[in-house]
Amino acid sequence: MFKELPLKQETLADLVERHTGQDGYYSTTIPYLFLSRFSDVTGPNYGVHNPSLCITVQGDKEILLGRESYKYGPSDYLIASVDLPITGQVIQATPESPYLAFKLEFNPSEILDVLRDSELFVQSKGTTKRAMYVSRIDSPLLDAVIRLVRLLDNPQDIPVLAPLFKKEILYRVLNGEQGATLQQIAVQGSSTLRIKDVIEHIMNNFERTIRVEELAEIASMSVATLHKHFKEVTAMSPIQYQKHLRLQEARRLLLSESSDASDVAFRVGYESPSQFSREYSRMFGLPPREDIKRFRMIHEKTINA
């Protein structure tokens, strides 16, 4: 198997590079499949990592979740089973050997379908674990991924075959060494599934003040139990999670609308512009005005390079 993997990884790299061509993120004719290519290392990229399987086909990437670091390369895959505010950065890439990546999005109902149709042992509720992990890729999983990407060359086959290959990919992951962790996002009554409901509520209401008691009621947990399980799943407290969402949305608004920082602060839920500026600086390294100026200078240099 170990001799086969490099050959299969090379096959997948050729497919991804052919369907990207230039640097950037790419959606595909398969709605839940995304590809990316970068010919140099990148600066930090802030965003919400939605439930997905990610494979670095070539190069290396690092994801920061709270204070935790997840590095993965061609021999690994990364799973995120709930929406998580993260910082991502390509840490190995060159023009001769660009960073190439595969991303497959999924939802809990698809995990549940696989569990229902398979003979996998399902842990009834299980222990709450981190909703992000890195695991070693194996030959059967890589085979299924290659089959899915190859459908981009035969779009007429996508409606019938893509759902089957996606189901196989999820089955392989659930059958992997950390599959029990992914199971919990679909098991009714599990702590992970209840925390997912809390996460959705925060994401839909991040700009307003949310009482912890309100979140505890959604999860059917005590406040102390909610804090414990939320941090186990996301590596941060509910308040920290909300703060990450607010600051990421603020940066997006500042970049896209050239809005005043004080106005953006109020729009994302801050009552004090000075507090917003302090917390923005802690997260992004510079106050809002200077950070946006730096970002645009770097972007302009990249375009003119």
Results as ranks from 00 to 15, higher is better:
M1R: 13
E4H: 14
L5R: 04
L15F: 07
R18S: 05
D23F: 06
D23P: 01
Y26G: 06
T28S: 01
T29C: 12
T29F: 10
L35C: 10
F38V: 02
S39T: 11
G43Y: 13
P44T: 14
P44W: 13
G47H: 08
N50S: 07
S52D: 01
S52C: 05
V57T: 11
Q58I: 04
Q58Y: 03
I63W: 07
L65H: 00
S69A: 08
G73V: 09
S75E: 12
S81R: 00
S81C: 01
D83W: 13
Q89M: 14
Q89S: 04
Q89K: 15
E96S: 14
S97M: 05
P98Y: 06
F102H: 02
K103W: 04
L104W: 09
N107W: 07
E110H: 04
E110P: 02
I111E: 05
D113E: 15
G126Y: 06
T128A: 14
T128S: 13
S139R: 15
P140E: 00
L141E: 01
L142E: 02
L142C: 11
R147G: 07
R147D: 14
L151F: 06
P155K: 00
P155F: 02
V160S: 14
F165L: 05
K166R: 14
K166S: 08
K167W: 06
I169A: 10
L170T: 04
V173E: 07
E177S: 12
Q178W: 08
G179W: 03
L182C: 04
S190C: 03
S191E: 02
R194M: 11
D197I: 00
V198P: 01
V198K: 00
H201Y: 15
H201I: 01
M203G: 13
M203V: 13
F206K: 02
R211M: 03
R211F: 00
E213Y: 01
L215H: 03
A216N: 03
A219V: 08
M221W: 04
V223K: 15
A224Y: 05
H227T: 01
H227Q: 04
F230R: 00
E232K: 04
E232A: 06
T234F: 02
M236K: 02
Y241G: 00
K243M: 11
K243V: 03
L247G: 00
E249D: 12
A250M: 01
R252E: 09
E257T: 15
S258Y: 10
S258H: 12
S259E: 15
S259L: 15
S262G: 08
F266V: 06
S272N: 07
S274N: 10
R278C: 03
S281Y: 11
S281P: 05
R282Y: 13
M283S: 12
F284D: 08
F284Y: 13
L286W: 02
E290N: 11
K293L: 06
K293N: 04
F295R: 10
M297K: 15
K301P: 07
N304Q: 10
A305S: 15
